[in-house]
Computed example of a mutant assay.
Amino acid sequence: MGDEPLAIPIDSAPEAEPGARPRRIACRLCGRPLTGADSRRTGLGPTCDAKLHPPAPDIRTRRHEVDQDTLPGMDPSATG
């Protein structure tokens, strides 16, 4: 994530006057104000970011055992 360009340049803001309120940055998807540094950096709130980038599905839950015929020469009852 360190190599990604910032959606909103946070550090390049001009020096603010003492007592001035910080610039409000809104979510690009829903428009709510962003407060966290990561959210301000990406331009998306945590909820909207989860909607656009859902977690990858766990493929381990889709695996199951399949009944199959025994391979020739692997039958344990036939001792030779």
Rank of each mutant, 00 (worst) to 15 (best):
P9K: 06
T61H: 07
L71S: 08
P54W: 01
I25Y: 10
G31K: 15
H53F: 11
D69M: 11
D69C: 10
L34H: 07
A26I: 09
P18Y: 03
R63Q: 01
R63K: 10
T47E: 15
P46F: 02
H53I: 00
H64M: 02
L71E: 09
R41S: 05
I25Q: 07
R60S: 07
I59N: 01
G80K: 12
L71P: 05
R41G: 01
M1F: 13
L44C: 08
D67A: 11
P55W: 06
R32V: 15
G2S: 10
E4I: 08
D3C: 03
G31N: 14
D58L: 06
M74W: 10
A26P: 00
G19C: 04
T70V: 14
A56N: 04
P18A: 13
C30T: 11
P54S: 04
R32E: 15
T35P: 02
P72Q: 10
D11F: 00
R41V: 03
D69P: 00
G73R: 05
Q68E: 12
R23T: 13
A20C: 06
R63A: 00
P57A: 09
P76K: 08
E17H: 01
S39G: 15
L71F: 06
I10L: 11
P72S: 09
R40L: 10
P55D: 13
P57E: 10
A78H: 09
M1I: 08
P18F: 04
P14R: 05
H53A: 05
S77Q: 13
S39P: 06
D11C: 00
G2D: 12
E17P: 02
G43F: 03
D49T: 07
P72K: 11
A78W: 06
P76V: 12
L44I: 05
A13G: 02
P5V: 07
R63C: 00
R23L: 11
G31R: 15
T61M: 01
